[in-house]
Amino acid sequence: MSEFIQYTLQGLAAGGFYALSALGLAVIFGVLGVVNFSHGACYMLGAVIAAVLLAELSLGFWVALVVVPVVMFGFGVLMERLLVQWLLALDPLYNFLLTFGLTLILVEAVKLRYGVSGLPYEIPAGLGGQVTVGSVNLSVYAIFACVFSVVVCIAVGLLMTRTRIGMIVRAATEDAGRTRALGINVGRWVTPVFGFGIALAGLAGVLAAPTRAITAEMGSNFIIILFAVVVIGGLGSILGAVVAGFLVGLVEAYGVAYAPAYAQIVIFVLMAAVILVRPSGLFGREEVA
């Protein structure tokens, strides 16, 4: 039984992190209808920038947690202004291909500059060690990452549902024409929302830096799991991304515990099952699917 609890806790810890990582993807899709394939590359950039801040400017984890999202927000704004906006009127496939191409460029650029072996990073002071209760234990950092992720997810959820900004953004996605008729400048909100989504990807990258290998390819495999998370949760749904993040974390942990070789396949089996029963995902709106 204690083993079961151990795996459950580990699944939940990983799930919180998945939820935060998928959040930006859900926000951007929900508002712009863009399937941002470069989300994984932006997550990687977040981690790489954190590592560079540490190595070259001796700025640690806590500073990176603030600085990196700001930098990535700027990067997202540039990306939207220079590239993404021109394709918004076309088939979503165009932006999917654009962001896919951008991923390849970003990954190769990082390889060119920082090589392929990865960059060093350490657990921030005070977050090392484990918490042990009985025969169950979790690393302090995993608990921190999970709690931090959940707090950010709730904050973003509240921002979208409880504030005027959130209301405008949601109205704009629902019916841009009518929102405009009410005297609201819809276009003004598109760019910051895109930047915000990219900033969330960067934030997830910083959070990953102490526990994962920081390499140019670190987002390439991860984005696939994130797509599974948003598809299960319902494309564009923030609550969906959070619930699905935890679900995927748990399923993966139980997979490892009881059928290790199939640990990753079970995620996609879950995804297929959800799509069969609810094509728009657990919390997706029908018209999105």
């Binding site: 083993e3 690393s139 995993a142 993966e252 070789a261 640990a263």
Partner: peptide, 20 residues
Amino acid sequence: SIASPFPSDNFATFITKAGE
């Protein structure tokens, strides 16, 4: 002997299992 998927970035549970 525990097989892990390749590539993989979350080994926390594999490590727990390996400690059994």
